[in-house]
Design a protein around this nucleic acid. Structure first.
Lengths: 331, 331
DNA sequence: TTGTAGGCGTTATCAG
DNA sequence: CTGATAACGCCTACAA
């Protein structure tokens, strides 16, 4: 049925060459003001749309970027990715780009590989960074422009991140400042770069206060709820002042355990989370936590990638804004 | 730098024509077994990858589908979309397709429009359906193949959905069967088709039990927490047996209100949710709810779309499996 | 069974 | 300022 009109149709209708039409559209190359408006008017009237695929073939561009999306269902992580995505989408559409999602679960980067090998995208955004980062390594090797959200140990990788370190240090400092100095820290995968930074911020707050971190109160790579139960009981027995969880998943578990064990927050123990996901809104206590502007993070990452694709040189960035949200759990 | 090799390079290297190479790859058209393997081996050895964009231009295909993604941050909705997406991704990669996300917030379908007008995709999946469905109307008009997840009043629209109606009826029936017949129903946007079906299932359960629904206990288009507070207090004053929320966002609010108002669930009032999002895991009570296989839903929708794109005729489907999860809140 | 030539819709090169 | 003409990389009649 209704085949879309092409640049050639326009050329024929207007008695000019394809080249001229192309120039009128792209704005590149010299062209008479008269013919230019004539073409543009015709385009407007017949609502012509350039074929982006054909354009891409000629320019060796796809006008797509890939966004690596987590394939797991950890609910506390979703709001972050969602907010990032919205920010990304706002930027891409301004550039005439679209977003292809590459769902990556665990170490299986076959989806990403396919997309890259098929040359479906001009660049990639990694939405989290790992210590042993398979996707990043692959992308570096393949030479595709990419930006990673999160910190990296590899200087070659262009990254953008919230200032996790500072934020975590500040939150910890505030709690220390309230006189709660015997603090435990519970964190997730130590293969996530963010875990390192959170840990670093925690330690830095102690240093700043001239105190020493009690290493026996640091628990990383936690996720298993059974082990958490023991840990929480242990902490209460040890009479720690408070516990800081690196994310809301852990904080949620701790709340659940406390409720079940009849431990009262904040009476018996204080609680804070290094990452607010809004998943704890219906929890038994409202939780002190950190808030970041993830939508902006996604937007900035995308702008950086766009510049990278355009051949500009781009430097890693750290976004400075965060909020410390004080709630009942540390009262 | 390293320009990928093309079909022409292979042809030249092997002393055959481009056509022959193309045939060896696609499997279409007659070709000698000998030359065929010769080409395939060469491809393997030099790990040649066809340029999907060029292929698409020639075939008038993009090997992309669009998935309309919600632009809002309603956390209780994210798991559903996430699970759908994973299912979709599994299917598309089997077909050599990729997923472009179209972030649509409210009535602003400009993102979707751009994607369609730019001909970036061969088809679209709508991840929710509305009573007044702007995206669906647009897609119908534009003639792009699409499948909608969720029910529709428009027969022209090809849909696939969980059997919301049956599931809601069953859950309601169970609660009625426990002797709780004075039930309230709180629901979200009545512009969402799913709201209608949930309501329908609720009503059907009453009919099946030979009872009449008390219309004064039906509250749709709720979201505002302030109004919910009044409603909950009203319900308690009216001594209703229980309240069913159409989703976890509402259920979460109700839990919060009850806790604040010192109303005990399930002692003072029973509670159930028509849609389990796992966001209530840390809530004060565990909530009776419905579980669906959303990943499969996404997978089925995608398979249907693939068939549609391949020109096959596809009929709307309703997926039958769901689970009723009985928890403390209705004890 | 294989090859030739033209087309998919643009952009880019190089003359005029 | 404008226009042929050749890419871009692949597919597909039609011929051989």
């Amino acid at each position: 049925m209704s085949n879309p009109i092409t640049i050639e149709d326009i050329a024929a209708a207007l008695g000019v060459s394809k080249t001229t039409v192309s120039r009128a559209i792209s704005g590149k190359g010299r062209i008479g003001e008269a013919t230019r408006t004539r073409v543009l008017e015709y385009i407007e009237k017949n609502n012509y749309r350039p074929n982006v695929v054909a354009k891409g073939l000629a320019q060796r561009r796809t006008y797509n970027i890939a966004v690596v999306w987590p394939g797991d269902y950890i609910i506390e992580d979703l709001p972050f990715f969602q907010k990032c995505l919205v920010g990304m989408s706002e930027v891409t559409s301004g550039y005439g780009y679209d977003i292809i999602v590459s769902v990556v679960a665990g170490d299986d980067i076959s989806s990403l590989k396919r997309i890259i090998e098929n040359r479906k995208v001009d660049g990639v955004i990694l939405t989290r960074t790992l210590v042993d980062d398979k996707p990043a390594d692959y992308l570096l090797e393949s030479g595709v422009p990419f930006v990673a959200i999160g910190d990296s140990l590899n200087e070659q990788i262009i990254t953008v991140d919230n200032d996790i370190f500072d934020a975590c240090r500040e939150l910890t400092s505030i709690i220390i400042g309230k006189g709660h100095t015997k603090l435990a820290l519970i964190g997730g995968s130590s293969n996530h770069m963010v875990t390192r930074n959170r840990y670093g911020g925690f330690v830095a707050a102690f240093e700043k206060a001239g105190k020493k971190v009690d290493e026996s109160l640091i628990f990383l790579d936690q996720g298993n709820e059974q082990k958490l139960i023991e840990i929480v009981k242990h902490l209460v027995a040890e009479k720690v002042d408070g516990v800081i969880c690196m994310d809301d998943k852990l904080a949620g578990h701790v709340i659940g355990i406390c409720r079940y064990s009849n431990i009262k927050i904040p009476r018996d123990i204080k609680l804070a989370s290094f990452c607010n996901s809004n998943t704890l809104e219906n929890a038994a206590v409202s939780v002190t936590s950190l808030n970041f502007d993830d939508r902006n993070l996604g937007a900035v990452a995308t702008r950086m990638l766009m510049e990278l694709i355009d051949g500009e040189s781009v430097k890693s960035r750290k976004l400075k804004n965060y909020e410390v949200i004080m709630k009942e759990s540390t009262k």
